[in-house]
Amino acid sequence: MRDFSYDRADNVGAAIKSHVSGADSAYIAGGTTLLDLAKLEVMRPGHIVDVRRTGLDRIERLDDGRLCIGTNVTNTDLAYHEDVTTHHKLLSEALLSGASTSIRNKATTGGNVMQRCRCSYFRDNVSPCNKRDPGSGCAAIDGHSRSVYAVLGTSKQCIVAHPSDMCVAMAAIGATVSVAGPNGKRDIDFGDFHLLPGDTPWREHALASDEMITHVTLDAPIDGAKSHYLKLRDRASYQFALASSGVIVATEGGVIRHARIALGGVGTKPWRAERAERYLVGKPATADNFGHAANMALAEARPTEDNAFKIPLGRQAIVRSLTTVTA
């Protein structure tokens, strides 16, 4: 692990200023990604700005029903917050299905949004990897590509899945990411925050240089909707999703009024299945309609030999989670 300078900022302005002043700066909160990768020298921060003392650790329900989450709110605190368990059950379920208790106690909201991928070739610091070493290629495409690789949104430069469960729930709920930087504050729609790999897989998010996340604000809950997050994996705990589905559905007399479907483990970013959602609205909540929606959600999937099973598994996650919330 290389030497780095360390600064603990008391407020957002000071954090940004410190970040600007350093070379190869990185913000740190829970450190569950950064420290891991820095020890492997996959990330090589020269200057670390600790943002945990900047406040931003509150969850506030706004008058319009939206929920404003400070970047430093831990995954544990968010998962058990009453507004979340009451109005955004899938977010609580998603958080609690991720990592382990000790990691969730450290991991923060902003940090989770920013977490890096679990690709073995990214982490080995040797193999070609466009994320780590732009232009070097992607060792995963013809290599070992089972568990943590995507079937949706992949490119010829990168196929790794986005690892977060929390972000899948946020994609389904709808959210705004508030960021601050040297040029002031701005809001980014959650759906635009994470970038598809395309030809530039090293560009993972919409943050500009020196910007940091200050809040994530969830859209107001849909009246009368039920939600559920279903995560499928080999073992029952402590594994990234092979396929997961976060759904929000409101029905009226057996007919679907609102539908949100987001997928994890199968997409290169937290994946909204908007065509499938539109298909469902106005239709009866039947197994056939769920199956058709699931097919639509995975229609564009491009698997490798190793992860082809994620297509049927992703469909199963969608069908079961929709069945659960409409039962």
Partner: peptide
């Protein structure tokens, strides 16, 4: 233990990706 079929290097050489039963299993 999974290996890259081209290089022979281990792929899942950590506690997150080498799966053993957890408490919940």
């Amino acid at each position: 233990t999974e290996y890259d079929h081209r290089t022979g290097m281990p792929i899942n050489n950590n506690y997150a990706e080498y799966l053993v039963p957890t408490h919940l299993d």
